[in-house]
């Protein structure tokens, strides 16, 4: 075990179709894995297992040689502070204002984080996405697009080493899709490791190093960028979400 993130024989099952079955995967530091497949293929579920939302039935998730579900609480907390997860939907705690929502992980992980520096970082991302003045609003008072972007900002101010993104372009308009892709490129260039669930060929071409295709909870194919079939397989991705719709059109 010497990878940055290692999934070792990971299993999780809630039902016949809602499962992860014998998944082995390695992600090196600074690289980007794009996980693709049809909806309900288990790709989002896999991300949630890595994010700690679900506990694996068996198998191990190792992040920087530390089992993120084992050991004492302080060690797990330290390891988890370096992993951030961005939801497919813009999820926030509805009873606190957006500013408190954004600061929540930092408040939990660090007793004495630099609040001024963090607020500046928040403002930088707010300006980058041109979100306007919304920090003192409740999540329900802002649009779905903004909530989604704020999800990403919350993850980024945590300054994670591994960023998990579930369908980062879903619900976004073209302008914000471009801004997100551009930001992901920048983050990767700065050394952040990315694991992205999506079928977007744009993301794959922009930041993808490894393409993982899943079906029925299992990994059915792993291709690296050096692989001659990488872009050929990538081209197919565009049609995954449109499968079955073409005939109707």
């Amino acid at each position: 075990m010497n990878g940055f993130l290692e999934l070792d024989n990971l299993n999780w099952q809630a039902s016949e179709y809602f499962r992860i079955f014998k998944v082995d995967l390695t992600l090196d530091a600074g690289k980007c894995v794009v996980i693709s497949g049809y909806p309900e293929s288990g790709r989002s579920l896999l991300l949630k297992l890595i994010a700690g939302i679900y506990l694996p039935d068996s198998g191990k998730i190792t992040f920087k040689d530390k089992d993120i579900h084992g050991g004492n609480e302080d060690e797990i907390k330290k390891a988890r502070s370096k992993i951030a997860y961005v939801f497919e939907a813009g999820v926030h705690l509805s009873n606190i204002i957006i500013r408190e929502n954004l600061l929540l992980p930092l408040k939990f992980y660090y007793n004495d984080f630099n609040r001024k520096e963090t607020e500046e970082l928040i403002q930088y991302y707010i300006d980058y996405f041109n979100l306007g003045n919304l920090l003192d609003k409740r999540p329900a008072e802002v649009s779905i697009i903004k909530r989604k972007i704020l999800n990403l900002i919350r993850a980024l101010i945590q300054k994670p080493e591994l960023l998990l993104l579930d369908e980062p372009l879903f619900n976004l308009d073209i302008r914000n899709q471009k801004l997100v892709i551009s930001l992901l490129k920048k983050l990767k260039k700065n050394g952040m490791s990315l694991m992205i669930v999506c079928n977007s060929i744009d993301i794959l071409k922009a930041v993808g190093d490894i393409l993982v295709i899943m079906d029925n909870g299992s990994v059915i194919s792993i291709l690296s960028r050096e692989d001659p079939d990488f872009l050929k397989e990538a081209d197919k991705l565009e049609f995954i979400d449109l499968a079955g719709v073409e005939d109707e059109i």
């Binding site: 949630k48 994010a51 988890r80 926030h92």
Partner: peptide, 19 residues
């Protein structure tokens, strides 16, 4: 409140933050 938090994935949000 807690029931609605489950439905709105707010519990998942806490778990994803390690809380």
């Amino acid at each position: 409140e807690l029931g609605n938090m489950v439905i709105n994935e707010e519990i998942d949000l806490l778990l994803s933050c390690g809380i």
